[in-house]
Simulated assay, not measured.
Amino acid sequence: MQRQAKVQVKVWGEYACFTRPEFKVERISYPVMTPSAARGILEAIFWKPEFRYEIRQIGILSLGGQQAILRNELKSKQGKKPILIENDRAQRTSLILKNVAYWIVADIILTNRAVDPAAKYRDQFNRRVERGQCHHTPYLGTREFAAYFSSIGEDDVVQPVNMDIGTMLLDFAFIEDGSRKEMEFFRHDETGTRTVAGFAKPIFFEAKVENGWLYIPTQKYQQLYALEGQDALRVD
């Protein structure tokens, strides 16, 4: 059974914000899309618990520009009780990106739940891209910035951009831990799907754009799986 297969898609939008976590309250975007944002777009198009996406590289089709905006946000998280907007509204400045486009290349990596080859899921993904189908509207960093997507065209050319971004967020490892019940999330494994409690740990890498491509180190995903206590099936 084939354990992995490659997918790629073009995504673009009028606005984007890939928030740098070190700036805390104010939203300051990375200059390019993060791997976690790319994964979120792919999962919005097509996702099954039988596989995971590993982002291999992100190409810059349009770097776009920066724009500062002021917007209303909530100071607290939505819980079981309704929030009174007048008491929880906060105005915050955001430095966002405008008119961006990216070329996402990723591998479908099967999990221990998989019974079908990875090529089956790749073909399903490609059909959905061609038809413009998605489970929910994909977005560029934050939900208010909708993303459009299509197959890669002959006219799509990566810009010859080079930059050192520095430390960038790769993704979050969701770790099941009964002693740290900071959040609840779904765990998909060979036993099925269940709700567990635990916490999220961010994983970072040193990011660099070379000739328009941001390359993501494969070993970082192995670190993520080790933290979660789960293994994706790989063929290296």
Score class of each variant (00 low, 15 high):
Gly212Ile: 01
Glu206Tyr: 09
Gln219Lys: 11
Arg187Glu: 13
Val209Thr: 06
Phe186Lys: 15
Glu206Asn: 13
Gln219Tyr: 08
Tyr221Ile: 05
Glu190Ile: 15
Asp189Ile: 05
Lys220Asn: 13
Gln219Asp: 13
Thr195Asp: 03
Thr218Ala: 14
Gly198Val: 04
Tyr215Val: 12
Pro202Val: 12
Asn211Phe: 09
Phe204Met: 10
Phe199Tyr: 15
Phe199Val: 08
Gly198Leu: 05
Glu206Thr: 13
Val196Ser: 01
Arg194Asp: 11
Thr195Ala: 07
Asn211Ile: 06
Val209His: 01
Glu210Trp: 02
Phe204Glu: 06
Leu214Asp: 01
Lys201Glu: 14
Val209Arg: 00
Ala207Asp: 06
Gln219Gly: 12
Ala197Phe: 15
Thr195Gly: 02
Lys220Gln: 11
Pro202Glu: 09
Tyr215Pro: 00
His188Thr: 09
Lys220Glu: 12
Thr218Cys: 09
Ala200Phe: 04
Gly192His: 11
Thr195Tyr: 07
Pro202Gly: 11
Val196Arg: 02
Trp213Tyr: 07
Phe204Val: 08
Arg187Asp: 09
Phe186Gly: 13
Pro202Cys: 10
Gly212Lys: 02
Arg194Cys: 11
Arg194Ser: 15
Glu190Arg: 14
Gln219Phe: 07
Trp213Pro: 00
Phe186Pro: 11
Pro217Ser: 04
Asp189Phe: 08
Gly212Trp: 03
Leu214Glu: 03
Arg194Phe: 14
Ala200Lys: 10
Thr191Asp: 12
Val209Ala: 01
Thr191Tyr: 11
Thr195Val: 15
Thr195Asn: 06
Pro217Gly: 05
Tyr215Phe: 11
Tyr221Gly: 01
Glu190Thr: 13
Glu210Asn: 11
Trp213Asp: 00
Thr193Asp: 07
Pro202Thr: 11
Leu214Arg: 00
Gly192Trp: 09
Lys220Trp: 03
Phe186Cys: 13
Ile216Ser: 01
Leu214Asn: 04
Lys208Leu: 04
Val196Lys: 02
Pro217Asn: 07
Phe204Gly: 08
Phe199Lys: 09
Ile216Val: 14
Gln219Met: 10
Lys201Met: 11
Gly192Val: 13
Val196Trp: 04
Thr193Tyr: 03
Phe204Leu: 09
Thr191Ser: 14
Pro217Cys: 04
Lys208Met: 07
Glu210Gly: 04
Trp213His: 00
Thr218Gly: 09
Ala200Met: 07
Val209Trp: 03
Lys208Asp: 00
Ala207Pro: 03
Ala197His: 14
Gly198Tyr: 01
Pro202Tyr: 12
Lys208Cys: 02
His188Trp: 15
Lys208Gln: 10
Phe186Asp: 15
Arg187Gln: 14
Lys220Ile: 05
Phe199His: 14
Glu206Ser: 11
Trp213Arg: 01
Lys201Trp: 08
Lys220Phe: 09
Asp189Leu: 07
Ala200Thr: 06
His188Arg: 12
Arg187Lys: 15
Pro217Glu: 05
Ile203Pro: 00
Gly212Thr: 04
Val196Met: 03
Asp189Gly: 06
Phe199Cys: 08
Val196Pro: 01
